[in-house]
Structures are given as structure tokens and as C-alpha cells.
Amino acid sequence: MNGETTLGRFDTQTALVGAGTGAEMTLVLTVVMTVAAAVIFVAVMGVAWWAWRRETNVRPWWVWTGGVVVPVITLALLVVGSSLTLAAIGEVDEEPAVIEVTGHQYWWDVIHDPRDRSLRDANEIVLPVDQPVTLRLKSEDVIHSFWVPSISGKMDMIPGRTNALTVTATRIGRFRGQCAEFCGLSHPLMAFEVVVVSTENYAAYLDGLETEARDADTLQRTRGRDVFIEAGCPACHAIRGVAEGARIGPDLTRVGGRASLGAGMWAMNVGNLAGWIADVQDMKPGAQMPSYNHLSGPDLRAVAHYLESLK
């Protein structure tokens, strides 16, 4: 995983690198099917080449063989193989943890342990390594699709339904996911990151989600917090210990601790935060959040610095 240069990191969003059981098994299936398809293609073209060169008496059983018998055998193998893979992907040997992910235009609401502790985060999904997790996928508005190619195949998020996708991450690291169902103007800008951590770190992360947000410890950050409240941000965004309850926009309690801003699109830093707040509609057309371009320069800086400090 090289390239600290941009948010897009080479080889973190590909089905050809397995970092979860689903993706790994599917990758094996993919390779087997690709090789088989290549062999069949070469064989068919070979027959065609032969047929082109040769003038001969054709017999019906040739069509029976090529068109019926061989395909039936191949397809039967394929159906069996893929059904077995399908069954294997869904199989887990321990009770999976539950994470609820809700798609919005154009971001992801994440609730860890929704039944008991109901810990909210957004646009970044932390997963424990080697432990099955059931993702309960929902949508608040239009149809989205949850896809982290390196970890698992995709599953749609459909309003009025809850789809379950059970995944087991197998490698510690960061993997990029993206909405795979066309969902409107900023569909290409609806990504997220999956952070796979050790079991201990996952527990620590969950505990962190229960605590209140970090205090504003400098003059500028205090000003930023005040601006956050005065400008009306809490109508949509929650920061635990500062402004709670709102669920329209992403939870910002640990926004500065995320690697990215704007649903997996830009690096998390003061520069991007300031630009985002001042002109969301330019960076992400069609987003629900308006551009806050009426903030004074120092206020804008203060909010950006404050949010960046929430880790």
C-alpha cells in the first residue's frame, strides 16, 4: 500500500486482492471461471478455424456435443461450484457482531452494536480482524449499494428493507469502498473506508465511541465550538457532549480522527475542512448540506480547527 500522496490508494479497492473471506473465496471462483472461459474460448475458436479451412461432411452429433453435452457438463460444474461458494461465504462459526450501515445521499451512517450500545460513527467502518460481522444495510432515501471489493461482494441498500451481509475481514489495513448503485448527482463521490483492526483495538474503538468528544482546549478551538453551535450546525450534526440528538447528517464526535472527509473522498485536514464548510455544494453537488459561505474568515478557520481536533 504505497502512495501517501492521495486519498485514492492503489490496490485498496479491488476484487483481485482478498482481505475478507467473501472476497477471497470469490477470487478463487473468479480465477477458475476465467481460466475455464479462456480454454472454452480458445477451443471454440479452434473449431471455427478448423471449420473454415476444411470442407467436410458435418454430422449432427457435432452440434449435440458442442452445443448441448459439453455446455451441460460445464454449466453443471459451474452451478455446483458457485452454489458451494455461495454457501461457504454465508457460513460463520461464531455469533457475528452487528453493525448497522444506513445509506444517505451521499454518505454512510454507521451504528456499531445497534441492539445494546448503539454507538454512532459515520463514513468509516472499523472492523475487527478474523471476526464475523453482520452488516445490516438500510437506506434513508434512494437505493444505494454497499461494496468493499477487497472484503466482500456488494449488497444493495433499499428503502423499506434491511439486507444482511456477513463479512469476515482477514487482513489488518485500510480498504476503500464505494456506492455501487447509481444514486444521483454525487453518486461517484459516495465512498468510505473500512479500517480493519485487531480485536483489542476494535474493543478500544467501541469504548471510544461511548465517550464524549474531546474538549476544545485552545482559544481558537473554543471559538470554533461556539461558532459550530451558533451557526446552527447541531440541527443536523451531533457531537457527543456538545450537541446531541441530530441524525440528519454524519456524527462528528470523532470526525478529525477519520482518514477522510466527504464520505471517503478527501484527506482529513484543516484545509479541506475549511473548503468543505465554505463550499460543500461545489465539492459535492446535490449534498443535503448547504455551503456555509457566510462565516467570517476567522470563524471558518476556527470551526475547521475545532473539527479537526475531534479525534
Binding site: A15, G22, A23, M25, T26, L29, T30, M33, L78, G81, S82, S83, T85, L86, I89, P149, S152, G153, K154, M155, A180
Partner: peptide, 9 residues
Amino acid sequence: SVPFNWQAH
């Protein structure tokens, strides 16, 4: 194939 489709779809 369903698992492959989930990736490629």
C-alpha cells in the same frame, strides 16, 4: 454465478 455477480454487478 451469484458470488461472482456480487463482485462484478
